[in-house]
Structure formats: structure tokens, C-alpha cells
Nucleic acid binder design. Structure first.
Lengths: 235, 235
DNA sequence: CTTTAAAGGACCGCCCACGGCCCATTAACC
DNA sequence: GGTTAATGGGCCGTGGGCGGTCCTTTAAAG
């Protein structure tokens, strides 16, 4: 039995307790911009059902996010839990980063993102999917430094959705959270942002034009850009 | 908020209770050939620690696998839990397959497997990694119809390991379990098997030769083969 | 102004899972 | 042949998470 394979298979069955995992999932929705600023989360009862977790646990998780300044709850009909316009700054984290973790997440991201771009370009997208992609691209292109991370994530998720595989979309969201945790430790510069926007346009054009090879290639260059940024700053 | 993205993010936080997930994980190790026939699982105490689950739960899971005929436990020093030489036939499952699930898993598999093959070919493998790959290839090529599924899975896992990313390896193992559940419903024919062996050799050669493009292309053709098989039988 | 429905807020009893501990068994070693 | 260490087997008290139920608040609808 290979030691690496067994390490991959005998990893922990759960990343944390129900509360922690629920917090993490809701954080994904907020941080990746799936629920936009000012937007409302699904009602607690619905979240409870969809996340497969008791409502008590959902409430505790929401309470934690509320205390941290991410969301705010309002009672009464037409109430709910709303995403704050301005998100709290994230803790810088410890300076040391595991080189193996970096290699792992960057490799995974490369595979997933180039794969979604290619798959998206291979499908014949519905009109609403095409519009959704274009909208996400536009919103990312006009974002300022503060909003950029969320809108960028939202665009990459839109591309993943265009692949037509929910499992792929989930995987992209998960790896994006890991990448974001790393990106929090390096500065975001305007030139990088401009360059990203150009690449985004190329990728979306290729997808909408049904050109898988170009979509993959463009996405590869795009992820390689942030990858080398991370490698440079963290090593 | 896109309905697809929220479906991906607000999916259940846990696939089942601790017992069920532990059974699933141990089944992976057995069914995917990570622990070969006659081989010994790690001791219960170690499994408990690595899986992040209490020893009671591990024991209940092992008991379930034992009852199902997958493994056998022996007490005393140098005892342990051993994988049976002949695995029980799997239940056929219900005839109806969700078309969306099929599309989802095949798309995910294509992206992951072609990605791992490419990444593996891009790395400079250590001598023991190269040997491991060759061994897995040889064992798959000499397998008979009964053993083929396990050895094939083992080879694909070996390729995934060669990518150097444990996350990727885990993802490949997970999607392989889903694919296997589908493959159980269609017959395995010798011609398909021969064709697979030829493709396996091409893939491994490309990886060992450091040719990412060929590795990806060969793996793409390989997965497309089983994909069209599945689509044909199940639709 | 009253009604109503939908949302958050709070509590209770139950059970699964955990940690910890000790027992029983077995093959190697001296 | 006794000793030893590693392994599976089993038990018990505790706590987290669950399902269920009811209360409170709120804005739209009438």
C-alpha cells in the first residue's frame, strides 16, 4: 500500500464539527460573493434543510458570522439575514506557509480551473447562462480594489457553473477559499488587476465562442499568474 | 444569486453520519485496491486517529464491512483487519440512473483524470515514483476480468499520486467510487479491457517521458471510452 | 387599523458519537 | 515455557447536535 495513497484515503472524514463546517459554508457564500453585498441569505429553516444540519446549528453559525461583522439579522416577515455592505478585514494569519500545502492547492486549482474553462467552452450554453457569464465579467472589470476579490471569485464560479457540473462548481468554490486564504497575505496591486481583467475577457470570449483549446490556454495563463505571484511572495 | 451556484454551495455539509462516512472511506481503500487482497488495514487506534473519528465508530464500520464479507479481523499481537481475497459481489442497484448525475460525474472525472495525467507528466518523478507507476501498469495489464476493476483503479490512483497533490488524489479516489457505482450496472468485456491496457501504456509512457500534452490527450481518449460506454448502456 | 404570514428567537428531551479505560487474545521473543 | 507487546473486544459517562414545538417580531395586504 502506497503511503501517499493511504494518506489521501485515510484523511479525516470530517473537517470539523457541524458548527464549524456550517460557518465555513456560509463564509463561502459571503466571501465568494455568491450572496452579494446587501443580499439576503436563505431563511434559517431552508438553510437547515439544504445544509443537512439542525436549525440550532445554523443559528449558532449565523450568530458567529454576525458577531464577526459579516452579516446582520432582522426579525419579522420580510426579515432575514443580510450580508453587510462592508466586510470585516480578515486576520493576516501566521507568516509561515507550508510549502506542500501551497503546491497542493495551486496544482489542484490549475487542474480544476482549466478544466472548467474547457468544459464550459465545449457546451452549448443557454442564453441566460451566456448573459450570466457576461454580467459577471463586466462586474469584475469595473470593480475597485476593495471589491475585486469577491467579483473575481464570482466570475470564476460563473465559469465553473457553465461547465454544467455542480460537483465541479463545488470543487472550484472550495479550492478558491483555500487560495483566498493565501492571497490574504500578499498585497493586491492595480497592474495585476488590469492584467487579470484582460485575461478574463479572453477566457469568456473563448467560452462564448466555443473554443475549448483557447479557453483552457487562457485560463492556464491566468492561474499561472497568481500562482507565480504566490510562489514569489511566500517563498 | 445564481441558483446553480447556491445549489453548489448550500449542498449538505456532511454526506452522512460518522458511521456511514467511515464505512464509505474504508470501502474506498478496499474497493479501489489501495489495500490489496490479503493486505492489512491500519490498526483501529491508528484509523481512529487518522480518520478523526472515535475508535468505537471505526470498530462499528469494520464490523459492517466484516458482516458484508469484505474484511476479516484477527485478534492478538500481529493480528488486525485483513482484506478478503475474494470480495463479495456488489448489489446491482436500481436500474434508473439520474441523467444529471451521470453528466456530473463524467464531466468531473474527465477534468480530474486528464488534469492529473498532465500534471504528473510535468513533474520530474523520483525513482520510486516511476517504479510505482510501472508496477501498477504491469499489474493492471495482467489482471483477469475479476481483478481488473481494482487494479485499474489502483493504476489511476498511482497516476494521481504522481501529480504530487494529495487533494487531487483524494478527488480522483472519490470520483472513481462514483464511476464504479455506475460501472457495476454494465458488463465488462474483454475487448474493452484490452483497449484500456493499450491506452494505459500510452499514458504511463507519456508521463515517464515528460510529455504532458500526450499524457493529457491519451487520458482524455481513455476516459471518453468508458464515458461513451456508460452513456450508451444507461440511456 | 386589523389581520396574516413569514421570518428570527428560544427551549426541551433524546440519541449518536466521543474519550477514556480495562479486558482478552495472540504470536514473537528470550 | 514464560514474558511481552500489540492488537481487537467491550463498556460507561458525557456532551454536542438533532427534531420538534412554541413564542416574538415585523411589514405587507386588506
Amino acid at each position: 500500500m502506497s503511503v501517499q495513497a493511504s494518506a489521501a484515503l485515510f484523511r479525516p472524514v470530517r473537517a470539523g464539527n457541524a458548527f464549524e463546517e456550517t460557518v465555513e459554508r456560509l463564509l463561502q457564500a459571503v466571501r465568494l460573493g455568491v450572496v452579494e453585498a446587501g443580499g439576503r441569505l436563505p431563511p434559517e429553516r431552508e438553510l437547515s434543510e439544504r445544509l443537512g444540519v439542525s436549525r440550532v446549528t445554523v443559528r449558532e453559525a449565523i450568530r458567529a458570522l454576525s458577531d464577526a461583522g459579516y452579516v446582520e439579522s432582522r426579525r419579522g416577515r420580510y426579515g432575514g439575514t443580510f450580508v453587510n455592505a462592508v466586510l470585516p478585514p480578515k486576520p493576516a494569519g501566521d507568516g509561515v506557509i507550508d510549502a506542500e500545502e501551497l503546491q497542493d492547492v495551486l496544482c489542484l486549482r490549475h487542474v480544476l480551473e482549466t478544466g472548467t474553462a474547457e468544459q464550459a467552452a465545449m457546451r452549448s450554453l443557454m442564453p441566460d447562462e451566456r448573459r450570466h457569464l457576461k454580467d459577471a465579467l463586466t462586474e469584475a472589470s469595473v470593480a475597485d480594489l476593495d471589491d475585486y476579490r469577491r467579483r473575481d471569485a464570482r466570475l470564476h464560479l460563473a465559469i465553473a457553473e457553465s461547465s454544467g457540473s455542480t460537483s465541479l462548481t463545488s470543487a472550484v468554490a472550495d479550492v478558491r477559499m483555500r487560495v483566498d486564504a493565501l492571497l490574504d497575505r500578499i498585497p493586491l496591486l492595480q497592474p495585476n488587476l488590469d492584467h487579470s481583467n484582460t485575461q478574463h475577457a479572453t477566457i469568456v470570449d473563448a467560452i462564448l465562442g466555443g473554443d475549448p483549446a483557447t479557453a483552457r490556454q487562457a485560463m492556464a495563463e491566468h492561474t499561472e499568474g497568481t500562482a507565480s505571484l504566490l510562489r514569489g511572495f511566500l517563498r
